[in-house]
Design a protein around this nucleic acid. Structure first.
Lengths: 146, 146
DNA sequence: TTTTAACCCGACTGAATTAGTATGCTTGTT
DNA sequence: AACAAGCATACTAATTCAGTCGGGTTAAAA
């Protein structure tokens, strides 16, 4: 299960990406439109800003805007930023590898072999799907049953 | 990330499945061999027993044994039992569906479309990989680079 | 130049989950 | 009857989750 915070982050980014002309959007505007607790959203946007995904303007008539093109922001990147590694085992994370603590001989580990496939499948989807893909409705879905 | 408890459960089941003749194995035997805290493992085995995956014999010369054939026990089943739903969103779980709380129009939800693909890919792997597959080393791995 | 409406930031909190421990009870074999 | 095995409940310390609170800073407008 992904966290509520990640869901909020993705929805906020989608809202910004959908903004025509890329003009700034108020926190409260996003919060209302996407039904996200206002103060919590503030935190999230700050995280996204520190990561360089969005920019902000302060003072009256301020707001947030997407700093990068929607085609370059992947779901994987956002999820890693908020929730940490995508991999189901720490020893399978490419970005934040950690040894598993238990299993001594890592490439003999039976579990690892199975979960490596899960990790790769997950990455294949999340690291190739961008905000733009979703906005255009261009998300490949499963074969439609005829 | 899957929980430590799930990892222990899977390793314990693999140990039982590997037992020749299917003779019972002591908790402490499993605990030592797989390096799992003994009392914690007791709890886990009880869960697996209540779910009908293993059986136990009490008294001296007791122990645990696998109740079902190793070919019929999938990783998905074990993970669901210990960790709960596999799906990344509650509204995507086939076994334990719950509405998402926020998004009103579920099949218009942009996030859902993306994570549905992740959920399906995950299920494809975990619900088709069994204890037997892993034991035989028969886990399909990624294409070997030549 | 003062006001006002934005964003910025750290601290706090209540509930839930995780990864176990502790303590004792029941059961079956010897 | 004794011993060794599993059965069962309660407890706990640490962490995470999903926010809330209270103020500080900045910049445009009146």
């Amino acid at each position: 299960m992904i966290s509520q915070k990640s869901k909020y982050a993705l929805r906020a980014l989608l809202a910004l990406a959908a903004r025509p002309g890329g003009e700034p959007m108020l926190i409260s505007e996003i919060a209302e439109q996407e039904v996200i607790p206002r103060k919590f959203l503030e935190q999230i946007l700050l995280d996204l800003k520190r990561a360089g995904l969005v920019a902000s303007r302060r003072g009256k008539a301020g707001g947030y805007l997407l700093l990068r093109r929607a085609e370059t922001v992947t779901f994987g990147e956002v999820l890693r930023l908020i929730d940490g590694p995508l991999a189901p085992l720490p020893c399978l994370s490419k970005m934040a590898y950690r040894r598993c603590g238990d299993c001594a001989n890592e490439n003999a580990c039976k579990l690892r072999k199975v979960f490596a496939r899960v990790a790769d499948a997950t990455r294949d989807i999340l690291d190739t799907t961008t905000l733009a893909d979703v906005l255009q409705g261009g998300v490949k879905s499963l074969p439609v049953e005829i």
